[in-house]
Simulated scan of single mutants.
Amino acid sequence: MTLRLTNTAKTYPDGTKALLPSELTVEKGEIVSLLGPSGCGKTTLLRIIAGLETPDAGSKILFDDDDVTSLPVEKRKVGMVFQSYALFPNMSVRANIGYGLKMQKLPKPEIEKRVTEVLEICQLQPYAARAISALSGGQRQRVALARAIAPRPRMLLLDEPLSALDANLRESLRDELAVLLREFHITAIFVTHDQDEAMAIADRVAVMSHGHVVQSGTPEELYRNPNSEFVAGFVGNAMRLDGRSEGEKLHLDGGVLDLPADGTGQVVFVRAEDVQIDPDGPLSGKIETVTFLGTHYRLGISGIVSNVLTSTHVGLSAPKVGDSVKVSIKPDALMLLPEGTEAE
């Protein structure tokens, strides 16, 4: 199913504009993440798609060619997974998954067939007879997904699906969720404030700020070609290099960098993995912090810009705090963006 939102907005009675007029298209079978900080409007947008919030006059929501803007939630045929999962704790896994089908008054053989089908897809067969209270957080997540998908909804909506899990589980279940969503072959939209989660799971990410979508694209497009200072900083934690641009040169406190193009009127950003310790580098700084993270070291370097510059350093050893270092950054690793493109 294809989703199209046109001029979709939400203003609350007290005048609060939770969502500014927004456009969004989600293709059939596509997995799209609404990514942004708290209060940016992403959950409001998801609730409007679900039919849990009424949008402002002039908004338009199409499921394929069906205008569902005024359709109540129970008639939209969307599956929903919330942060809390909202499962029945003392009911078995099988009974939880079949509950929605029972409410639809489907024949018992059809219910059994569909429940068995999603138990297999979600690899829950060994737990079918267990009570929800006897399951781990990861297993509960799979039950919530199975229950949402069993009625064969037109679309699956997920609100921060991993936020209820502890940090140790999140990474493995993030990958598992990406696989499961693709096995369902269903259009899916999920809300998250976690950029790693969005990049790992989604085919396309819509970055939101202050009530509207500021950029939409594949994870690679957003990471490599952000259209604003806000997106550069929010997706991949790019750092701003404050300096003086003269043509294709950027003058910093710690030296001069070559730019990939004329930097006049532009601000320059770089990511930590592109800041390299290099004995022949044109920049000079001092190591302020060294953090060992297993696969790499995170170095904090002062003296190059007014703030501490972060470098991702791969190797068996790292410089020591207080060491003077030379640093290089390749011109094609620098991102030039128009000034004044912070979050609007």
Rank of each mutant, 00 (worst) to 15 (best):
P219R: 00
R154G: 09
K105G: 06
M239L: 11
G39A: 09
G236N: 02
S84K: 11
N227Q: 13
S133N: 14
R170C: 04
V321M: 15
K42N: 03
I149R: 02
K75W: 11
Q139N: 08
H313P: 06
G15M: 10
T44K: 06
S306T: 15
G98A: 07
N96Q: 01
R47F: 08
R140H: 02
S284Q: 14
P21G: 08
F82K: 01
E221Q: 14
L106Y: 01
L293N: 11
T2L: 12
L119M: 08
I149K: 01
T187M: 08
T54H: 12
P126K: 09
D159C: 01
G39H: 05
H193A: 08
D194L: 11
G300Y: 04
T312Q: 13
Q141H: 04
L119P: 04
T54P: 04
A198Q: 02
K105I: 05
A178Q: 01
L52N: 00
L119I: 02
T312D: 14
S38A: 12
K249D: 11
G247T: 11
P13D: 12
T310I: 15
P21F: 02
S84T: 12
V267P: 00
E27M: 13
I111Y: 00
R240D: 10
I49E: 05
R152K: 14
V308F: 06
T312R: 15
E112K: 12
K105E: 12
T6E: 15
R204M: 11
H185M: 12
D278W: 07
A86I: 00
A57N: 13
A200G: 06
D258G: 08
S133Y: 11
R94S: 13
K320D: 15
K249E: 14
R174L: 04
D159K: 08
V143T: 07
R114I: 00
E117T: 10
A178C: 09
K326W: 12
I304Q: 02
H212F: 15
G247V: 03
V118D: 02
T25Y: 08
D64T: 08
L336I: 04
A202V: 05
D203S: 10
E30V: 03
G254E: 04
T16Y: 13
N90E: 13
L177A: 04
G29N: 01
V207E: 03
T291Q: 13
D278I: 11
D14V: 11
R154S: 13
M80Y: 09
L177Q: 00
Q123D: 15
D203F: 09
R204W: 09
L283Q: 02
G58L: 09
S324W: 13
V179K: 15
G255S: 08
P319R: 08
S22R: 01
S209M: 12
L241K: 02
E220R: 13
A188I: 01
S228F: 03
I149V: 15
V115K: 00
G217N: 07
P260T: 10
Q83C: 06
L336F: 10
E112P: 05
G303S: 10
T192Y: 02
I277D: 00
G79M: 03
P37W: 03
D14M: 11
L169Q: 08
A148E: 00
P55E: 03
L257Q: 00
D274R: 12
M91P: 00
V213T: 09
V231D: 02
L283A: 06
L169V: 03
I31S: 03
M91S: 11
V235M: 02
A272R: 10
L222I: 07
D258Y: 10
E117P: 06
V327D: 07
R94I: 05
K77E: 15
A129N: 14
V115S: 06
H313W: 09
